[in-house]
Design a protein around this nucleic acid. Structure first.
Length: 276
DNA sequence: ATATGGCCCTGGTTGC
DNA sequence: TGCAACCAGGGCCATA
């Protein structure tokens, strides 16, 4: 599932393809989801605008748009959330449009930007910036938050550290894979109450999370299920997973079998020996 | 305010 | 082999 490293990879590859291009025409599917903004409003806002740049904010992909004819200032941003199975693909028009395609933006360069999402957990929205304020995600950025602020996030919290890592209003961008992997690297049992972890252990978790996210970005993300970047290229970080989806397999450190339980409604993978 | 659980949706997997 | 039941899971919403 797309988390911070996958979203960053997609945003960067889309940016390389579409930056500076004009949106010539827009097609949107007839489904209610994934549209958070009405289809007519979205079509109007996107058509004939130029894509200034594409970047990641939390798990959201942000398209900075400039109004038609260069008359308008930065008028709106197009926000794409990939959900579970969302993909953004840049394709030649003659390439068949995949099943479950919900948006097709024809670009001045001749290619099409397509949003495809089988499960429809993804979201497409328009963000109108007031006073130049760009779209902001709900929580703090794991890659730039200071160690002190990271520790403070969990103070007094009774929920498990796994659930806390998944809570996007605290940190945004971390999902099930990187929550499990960072807890393994930090040696922390996912069930531990977030507010009861020592400052030292939280600092370790912060470092572990940053290292893992940065390495995953370098490797183009984790391709489990069907994640690919805008060119259809898969990532390689899944080969580095120590616990995620390795239930019953030997721990790469101590050899004991990886265990699985459900926390916060999510499959949670850990080593009972290496994580206390 | 904080935390929990159900729900959405389809494709892949499992089981008979 | 074929088909149906089951399950995964990010974010949102209702509820405790």
């Amino acid at each position: 599932m797309p988390e911070l490293p996958e979203v960053e990879t997609v945003a960067n590859s889309v940016n390389a393809h579409v930056r500076g291009q004009q949106i010539v025409s827009v097609w949107l599917s007839r489904y209610k989801e994934p549209f958070k903004t009405s289809r007519t409003e979205m079509t109007e806002a996107l058509t004939a605008t130029r894509i200034e740049k594409v970047y990641r904010e939390g798990k959201h992909i942000v398209f900075d748009l400039h109004g038609p004819g260069g008359a308008a200032r930065k008028s709106a941003q197009w926000i794409v959330h990939l959900g579970m199975t969302g993909r953004l693909l840049v394709s030649a028009p003659e390439v068949p449009v995949p099943k479950h395609t919900h948006a097709v933006l024809a670009l001045s360069g001749g290619r099409e930007l397509r949003f495809v999402d089988a499960r429809r957990f993804g979201r497409l929205a328009l963000h109108r910036s007031e006073g130049g304020a760009g779209f902001r995600g709900p929580g703090r950025e794991p890659l730039t938050i200071s160690p002190e602020d990271f520790v403070a996030l969990f103070r007094g919290r009774k929920l498990s550290i796994k659930a806390a890592l998944l809570n996007q209003t605290l940190l945004h961008g971390v999902g099930n894979i990187y929550a499990d992997e960072s807890l393994f690297r930090a040696g922390i049992r996912p069930t531990r109450a977030a507010g009861k972890l020592s400052r030292e252990r939280l600092l370790r978790l912060h470092a572990a999370l940053k290292e893992i996210l940065q390495k995953a970005i370098k490797l183009g993300g984790s391709s489990v299920s069907d994640y690919v970047d805008a060119d259809g290229v898969a990532g390689f970080f899944q080969l580095e997973h120590n616990v995620y989806l390795r239930t019953g397999e030997p721990c790469r450190v101590c050899g004991r079998p990886i265990r699985r339980l459900v926390l916060a409604g999510r499959g949670t993978h850990y080593c009972a020996h290496c994580q206390k």
